[in-house]
Design a protein around this nucleic acid. Structure first.
Length: 227
DNA sequence: ACCCAGGGTCATA
DNA sequence: TATGACCATGGG
């Protein structure tokens, strides 16, 4: 088999290539089985339109981006990604074989670059050993998620982002933006932990890959806009 | 000068 | 279980 991590499935949106489900011709009839959650997502979509996440060319690039964007702006992560691309360091094998200094320099614009270098290498090692993208797509969702959470530097949000956008699975990505929205609509009590917020949404979203992808993207977009 | 960004980990209490 | 410190760069 060819180099795992280089399997391209990019679609092209107005803001560049993205790995993900192309937007449907018209908005879905339903986003969620819960009336209020459905209304919330309808409003977000009406306000912001299709987000076309994740901006990347390959599934592995999604994973790298998910690691690099932690506690940083996408702008910074994107710069680091561009550096990695220019240095041909966007596959697990290349990253594992790379000079540590070169790798570190490439990651610098995304901040916490020593940490991220270690995390990226740990993930690359796991990804390659586990057989590439199959490790995310083939096992039952919970099993794949647990495996990801075992990789140092991969927490709940990062794992779910990889599963949703790189592996195209029905994973709900929960973050503080989404919780803020849920709380402001009175859907969940203030301060509810993110794991429960995630479960709340997971139990109510319709079974559509595109809807799962848009859910997180719209929440982030709304969180970015509002303030 | 201060605050925070598309988090996660580790040490304390 | 629940906070706080830490990571490090870039923009407001």
């Amino acid at each position: 088999m060819s180099d795992p991590g280089l399997a391209p499935t990019p679609w092209r949106g107005p803001e560049g290539p993205f790995v993900g489900t192309p937007p449907p011709a018209r908005a879905p009839r339903r986003w969620a089985h819960d009336e209020r959650l459905d209304a919330l997502l309808r409003e977000l979509f009406a306000a912001h339109g299709p987000q076309r996440w994740w901006p990347a060319r390959t599934p592995y690039e999604v994973c790298v981006g998910a690691l690099l964007v932690q506690h940083t702006t996408w702008r910074g992560a994107e710069r680091a990604l561009a550096n990695l691309r220019a240095a041909r360091l966007l596959s697990p094998a290349r990253q594992l074989a790379a000079d540590a200094g070169a790798l570190g320099r490439a990651l610098r614009p995304s901040g916490t670059w020593r940490l991220k270098r270690a995390r990226l290498l740990a993930f690359a090692d796991w990804y390659r050993a586990a057989g590439g993208l199959r490790a995310l797509t083939e096992p039952p969702l919970e099993r794949a998620r647990t495996a990801l959470l075992g990789v140092p530097g991969v927490g709940p949000e990062t794992a779910d982002a990889m599963l949703c956008y790189a592996a195209a699975r029905h994973a709900v990505v929960m973050d503080v933006y989404a919780r803020r929205l849920l709380v402001s609509r009175g859907l969940v009590p203030a301060g509810l932990d993110l794991a429960r917020c995630r479960a709340f949404v997971a139990e109510r979203l319709v079974r559509s890959q595109w809807v799962h992808e848009e859910f997180h993207a719209l929440c982030v977009r709304a969180g970015r806009a509002g303030r």
